[in-house]
């Protein structure tokens, strides 16, 4: 073989290999999408057969019968609330850590840094027991309980567990912004609060976007905390899907499960496709900004 043909076969092989790996990722996801519109009988034929038609009854079953519609809104509520909480408490904290000198600042920084290494999986049991304790203490006032099965409390816990990461990222970004803007605003008579919200916050938009995206994925995709803190009827989408999986094992009701999976996957895929585009545009724009 000449070096030229050798290089070409090498290149062709590379394409085959990379394409095979990409297919190994894409095919299972696509397979679920197709399977979600199949009729019950079709699941017993060839797994590679395309759906005979759009059997949308699966989606009705999942949305209504398996309550995925209701769970969808719980997930949405918890995620949005969690994002609101985490941004509301982390932006001011990150700002003063970046810009003000106060006693105990290094202690706060070290504690938050250590918090980056605490994984939720370890501490969700103590959190659960603590909330049960609080409910027990309040049993005379609120006999129905307050802290367990409360989406608001769940989103507070979400916010709390992502404070270390969020503050860390925002602090670094605030530090990279020159102080000139704040000095100018202060000369114009802006208050501390106005400087933070009107001057610094708009400039921190790129970091804020990153933080919101990552936290969105973390909250939306979580199931361990949701499973523990919402044991009652009001579940999140991920926990609902887990229940569908268990139910399917008993009843072999594939269509409903696959439709449920698609309901969980699609919002995230759409968001991901949007970020991806933005990412590439951002890289192109980055050449101008430097």
């Amino acid at each position: 073989m000449t070096p030229f043909t050798k290089a070409r076969t090498g290149r062709a092989l590379t394409y085959v290999l990379v394409t095979a790996i990409a297919l190994a990722i894409a095919v299972p996801v696509a397979w679920v999408l197709f399977a979600s519109v199949k009729r019950k009988g079709e699941f017993y034929g060839s797994p590679w057969a395309l759906p005979e038609g759009l059997h949308l009854q699966n989606y009705v079953d999942a949305f209504v019968g398996a309550r995925m519609g209701q769970y969808f809104f719980t997930s949405l509520l918890v995620t949005v609330l969690g994002l609101v909480f985490v941004v509301a408490v982390s932006v001011p904290a990150a700002y003063v850590i970046a810009r003000y000198e106060f006693r105990g600042r290094s202690l706060v920084e070290v504690a938050l840094l250590a918090g980056l290494f605490v994984n939720v999986n370890y501490i969700v049991v103590p959190i659960f027991l603590m909330l049960v304790d609080w409910d027990r203490a309040l049993v005379d006032v609120l006999p129905g309980g307050f802290f367990i099965d409360n989406p608001g409390v769940l989103s507070l816990v979400y916010a709390a567990t992502s404070i270390p990461f969020t503050v860390y990222l925002l602090t670094a970004y605030f530090r990279s912004i020159p102080a000139d803007y704040e000095e100018a605003a202060a000369l114009d008579g802006a208050s501390r609060f106005q400087i933070m919200t009107r001057v610094m916050l708009p400039m921190a938009r790129p970091a804020l976007t990153t933080v919101i995206l990552f936290n969105f994925l973390a909250y939306w995709n979580d199931f361990i905390i949701a499973l523990t803190l919402l044991p009652g009827e009001g579940k999140t989408l991920q926990v609902g899907l887990l229940n569908l999986m268990t139910a399917q094992k008993a009843a072999a009701d594939y269509g409903r499960l696959y439709a449920g999976m698609v309901i969980v996957i699609v919002p995230v895929l759409i968001l991901y496709a949007l970020i991806q585009r933005r990412l590439i545009e951002g890289m192109a724009a980055g050449g101008v900004k430097g």
Binding site: P92, P126, A160, P164
Partner: peptide, 26 residues
């Protein structure tokens, strides 16, 4: 001082309550 405290306190309370205390409890 008051401004720093007001900015820091909500985040610290949540962090201590739902991360430090449970970790110590483990």
């Amino acid at each position: 001082g008051p401004f720093v405290l007001a900015c820091l306190l909500p985040a610290l309370v949540l962090f201590v309550l739902f991360m430090i205390v449970p970790t110590v409890n483990v």
